[in-house]
Design a protein around this nucleic acid. Structure first.
Lengths: 340, 340
DNA sequence: CTGTTAGCGCGTTCAT
DNA sequence: ATGAACGCGCTAACAG
């Protein structure tokens, strides 16, 4: 029933002209007679001709597809980021091939393989929490597939990336608490190896020294970000010999667990114990307990910037890939104080 | 630097054998000598040869790509659904091309065009709230691109789809309230034209008549699902001449707005006024106010089933597309009572 | 202005 | 057991 897609060949045959004439007519090539041009175009639309992109992609060695690999779409941060990516991609005629690593290094690797097979033109990656080996990224580089990391970036030399300056964000967060009179401030950090954790730690330290307060390492506890670990971390801080009056948490999910735990210990939230976090969560106003303030990481913007960077790399590629350096964009994070 | 991808042609030249021999060797064709086979394979892996899928796709007239179009990834329902889709797709060697319609009919249409251009093998769509014309879907059908709808499906004949039985879900929800002694139950429904709204209305009516209660149309109010509209709907129900003691809401987002509004009117939630909703939201335990119960729609499962259906259609296509009928899968929704 | 030809990378007959 | 040749749909370099 559904007639198979017509080709320029078909059109050429029917019109008794050559294939290339048809091709040129369709492309408004200047050297085609108006008469033939209209004839071609009419028949084309009559037949509902549509160029076979697969063929074009093939011969142009380009798929106009960019792969996006990220941990979880269910995290608001990423669903916002991918919207930014999608918008930029679409504006530049690219489509988005999706892959969720689910924070599984093996899965991430496999997705990369698949994407490579599909000959994506470039890749946008926010690496999984558990990715420790970076071979597959190196491999991509060697294959000449441009790669831009965003948000969660690997500790590798010469990479392109977009990330948030979590150092300054954490300085803001901690300073906010200090200005509000808190002196003993805990930090529930993520896994120690994570770059994101290092930045938070650094920001915390900077803020402390700025206020001429001694940095107490025991006020920083690491969590592997499971609920249990988050609660355990909270417990530790609550048992600290000094009275902790405020806590900065690695992200909102940690904050929720911590606040829940503290509340269950009959602690008056955001009074006896204040929380400041990093905004990954929507619905703040509908939450039972919300942190007093949250560091906004601008996910949509990060996605946008990363996609723009990639698109630029893709454009440049044809001419000269002589720029071996690395592009970096640091998006400023900023503390948002909730007025609830 | 990065050597361009080697081809079988390249390998053939180096080994002084023909292209087709290389091709066959790589495919373990029985009629290739063990000796040449190993030689080929060795060189191939040495050069890190990888078949150019773009070329293969092209000549096989297949991209092994399925397009997924849905309103918002930021809604938990959809991010869960796409995970189900991704898993099934991956298991069957398909990749997922993503497009968010943002509930914009025009955008939806344009995404479909792009996907068609990209020659996706099939499409999975949850239509936007504002899609009223179905031409583009018809067009796809005519092009021979298999189409499976999920969750939000258009009112069209002969379509394949996976959806949740919201009628029975609503019957359960309403009955739950009736069993708990409520007699005057409001329903904040979505836009009237939506199939999802019709189902909810129907379920509401069925539950009422099952309990031999008279159906009062004025207890059903429509919302366009904006915050304002949700609050206005709530207001109407609160002003109802009969005392409304329970409300079924179109979804969790509506419920949140409604509960917030009611709370601001000094109403004791889930006591003076009970809420039951449809589960689109995670973090239920962290919410300030949560409905007493929620109808689970099994998004992951719906995504899975829809993808499986599409994969099957894609497999069948080659042989005979003689089955013009339509596949339907109704996933049972079920009421989850929160024990908070 | 238009036609001819070649080639993109691969699978697939059809020969040998 | 291997090679030559063709075609998928399209673009582009090269003739007229």
């Amino acid at each position: 029933m559904s007639a198979k897609q017509p080709t320029i060949k078909e059109i050429a045959k029917r019109l008794n002209i050559s294939i290339s004439t048809v091709s040129r007519a369709l492309h408004d090539h200047p050297s085609i007679g108006l008469r033939t041009k209209t004839r071609v175009k009419e028949l084309a639309s009559e037949l509902m001709y549509e160029p076979n992109q697969a063929a074009i992609f093939f011969q142009q060695r380009k798929t106009f597809t960019i792969g996006v690999i990220l941990p979880f779409l269910s995290e608001a941060f990423f669903s916002a980021a991918i919207s930014g990516i999608e918008d930029v991609a679409g504006k530049n005629q690219y489509t988005v091939l999706l892959g969720q690593s689910r924070d599984d290094a093996e899965r991430e690797k496999q997705i990369i393989d698949t994407m490579k097979k599909h000959r994506v033109d470039g890749l946008l990656i926010s690496i999984s929490k558990h990715t420790t080996s970076y071979e597959h990224f190196e491999m991509l580089k060697r294959s000449g597939i441009p790669l831009v990391f965003f948000d969660c970036i690997p500790n590798m030399p010469d990479i392109h990336y977009v990330a948030c300056n979590m150092v300054s964000g954490t300085v803001q967060a901690t300073s906010f608490l200090l200005k509000n009179g808190h002196r003993v401030i805990g930090l529930i950090n993520g896994p120690e190896k994570l770059y994101a954790s290092k930045q938070r730690k650094e920001g915390y330290q900077i803020a402390m020294s700025k206020h001429r307060l001694k940095y107490d390492p025991s006020l920083i506890v690491n969590s592997d970000l499971t609920k249990e670990s988050n609660c355990e971390a909270t417990r530790q801080l609550l048992l600290h010999k000094r009275k902790v009056t405020a806590i900065v948490t690695f992200n909102d999910y940690v904050a929720l667990d911590a606040m829940q735990y503290a509340h269950d210990q009959n602690i008056d939230l955001n009074k006896d114990l204040c929380f400041v976090s990093y905004a990954n969560l929507p619905l703040a106003q509908h939450l039972k307990y919300a942190p007093m303030a949250s560091v906004e990481q601008h996910p949509y913007l990060q996605g946008q910037k990363a996609a723009e960077m990639l698109v630029e790399l893709l454009g440049k590629k044809e001419d000269e890939k002589e720029t071996p350096g690395s592009y970096k964009i640091i998006v400023d994070s900023q503390l948002m104080v909730y007025n609830i």
